[in-house]
Design a protein around this nucleic acid. Structure first.
Length: 473
RNA sequence: GACCCCUUCGUCUAUCGGUAAGGACUCAAGAUUUUCAUUCUUGCAAGAGGGGUUCGAUUCCCCUAGGGGUCGCCA
């Protein structure tokens, strides 16, 4: 079998979104799993929608996520260029071939004409498609129009009544009648190709073996197959992925959701969680395993286990996964990624900062939660009246005074000693554990919840601990 | 509207004709814990409907319904 080659081919019209990430990921996983190549191709054929800097942003985000390509605009291979706007000559060459072979024709209809035509068809309840009024233009007419500089497009001439059948790796046998397929525009009036022409030509010359893309492309596949036939090329294996859905089960969209990968990263989701989560949206291993690193995914992934039906993008499970990775990734990694949410002065003392992260990660979902949790160690937020009441009772003061005396000369790192002190404290003062810990926690942290005492003191240090206690004496 | 795709707990899913339909998230209850968080246990919760085929269907076929996608000089 020849080497598998797949591609992720986004158009630079905005940020990478969740659906794009999943498509890129599956392409990547399939390539890695089969020892093939994964290619990144930029499809910038729509001059109007192109967003400045979007291509670079896409590349950066993908790279950050750990999805790397064997060939890309930044890492050209033998089949470049990898940006479609740099391949215009190629598209024209093959458009001309189609024209000569009678598989394509010039169309001089203006957009107004087209719009009117569609409205009429719609009014009559007809299937809306190009009525081919330019199909039978004489050579002379075409020459004249061309000479007169009338804007034109080149359309593909679809067969009239033909069943296009193909085997889709995830959907199995699919059939569609060509009368549903419009005479697709191949070359636009600005001279740029449409997706349909450019992708087929590129996929062929880049030797793509599997086209792995979203289900929204399923219905245009007959056009693509026809194009392959016209050129006499071998089509790739088709793989149409189920869509990722909004909670209302419509196609995941910006309108309803935040869908850019960057926005999730900015909210403090970890790439490991995002990748793991998105991998499971449409693919599932044979067993019950749910936690996968990128490498493990590469090992386990297979097209056979890709699902057919769409999957709702559900934040609660993503949150759970993020909590998992927040707790299990190396501490230094979490500390580093969380740093931007902290005040610069708060992370100067790295050892202390790490202790704080260690305590906070057990109780957080997102990266910024870490900083929020850490406030108790830095800031002096106002204390609630209830808490002041608790901490200023006579009994509480007794605890505070006694405890301060006990710890003032010990090492903040001596957890065992601190534990021992608390035990004797409860015994000596003859009180319940709660009456012992509550006032201490309020005095030390400003509120009754938080890590265990040894951890608090280790973070605060003996001096600061005593100072905070004294405040309430 | 036409065509195509899809249909198991609220969500992600397992099941390759024979299961008490399993797991995970969420939620609830309980246990553990000085608090918070963790952890553990238990529980709630599903085969869209109707026909077939079969000794036996969630699984295969058909119909219906529902949902989605596509119908651009956007990808």
């Amino acid at each position: 079998m020849t080497k598998t080659r797949v591609r992720f081919a986004p158009s630079p019209t905005g940020f990478l979104h969740i659906g794009g990430l999943r498509t890129a990921l599956y392409n990547y996983l399939f390539a890695r799993h089969t020892g093939g190549d994964c290619i990144l191709r930029i499809e910038d054929t729509d001059q109007n929608r192109e967003v400045e800097g979007a291509a670079q942003n896409l590349i950066d985000t993908l790279h950050y996520m750990g999805i790397d390509f064997d060939e890309s605009p930044l890492k050209p291979g033998k089949h470049g260029p990898y940006i479609q706007s740099e391949r215009l000559d190629l598209y024209h060459k093959y458009a001309n071939y189609l024209l000569d072979a009678g598989h394509a024709y010039y169309c001089f209809c203006s957009s107004e004409t087209l719009q009117q035509m569609r409205e009429e068809q719609q009014a009559k309840g007809e299937f809306v498609k190009y009525d081919r009024r330019c199909l039978n233009l004489s050579t002379a007419e075409i020459e004249n129009n061309l000479a007169a500089g009338i804007p034109y497009v080149i359309r593909l001439r679809m067969p009239d009544d033909r069943i296009f059948a193909f085997e889709d790796e995830v959907r199995g046998h699919v059939e569609m009648n060509s009368f549903q397929s419009d005479d697709q525009v191949l070359i636009k009036s600005d001279g740029f190709p449409t997706y349909h022409l450019a992708a087929i030509i590129d996929d062929h010359f880049m030797k793509i073996s599997h086209v792995i893309r979203g289900e929204e492309w399923l219905s245009s596949t007959p056009k693509h197959i026809w194009l392959y036939e016209c050129f006499g090329w071998e089509p790739p294996i088709w793989v149409h992925l189920p869509l990722i859905l909004n909670p209302d089960r419509s196609k995941l969209s910006k309108r309803m959701n935040d869908v850019s990968v960057e926005s999730y990263l900015n909210k403090g989701y970890l790439k490991e969680a995002l990748l793991n989560f998105v991998a499971l949206l449409g693919w599932h291993p044979a067993d019950d395993r749910e936690l996968y690193s990128l490498d493990e995914l590469c090992e386990s992934f297979s097209l056979e286990r890709v699902n057919k039906s769409g999957a709702v993008f559900d934040l609660t499970k993503l949150d759970w996964m993020n909590r998992h990775y927040l707790r299990t990734l190396p501490l230094e990694v979490i500390a580093e990624r969380a740093a931007s949410w902290f005040q610069p002065q708060d992370i100067v003392d790295q050892s202390r900062y790490h202790k704080i992260i260690a305590a906070a990660r057990e109780r957080s979902t997102l990266l910024p939660d870490l900083a929020e949790y850490a406030r108790m160690f830095f800031a002096s937020d106002p204390i609630s009246d209830d808490n002041i009441e608790i901490v200023s009772s006579d009994d509480s003061r007794k605890v505070l005074a006694w405890f301060k005396e006990q710890i003032k000369d010990i090492s903040a790192e001596d957890a065992e000693k601190i534990l021992e002190i608390t035990k004797t404290g409860i015994k000596e003062l003859g009180i319940k554990g709660k009456a012992f810990y509550m006032p201490l926690r309020i005095a030390l942290l400003g509120q009754p919840h938080g890590p265990d005492l040894p951890t608090i003191i280790s973070i605060l240090g003996v001096e600061e601990s005593c100072r905070r206690i004294e405040h309430y004496l």
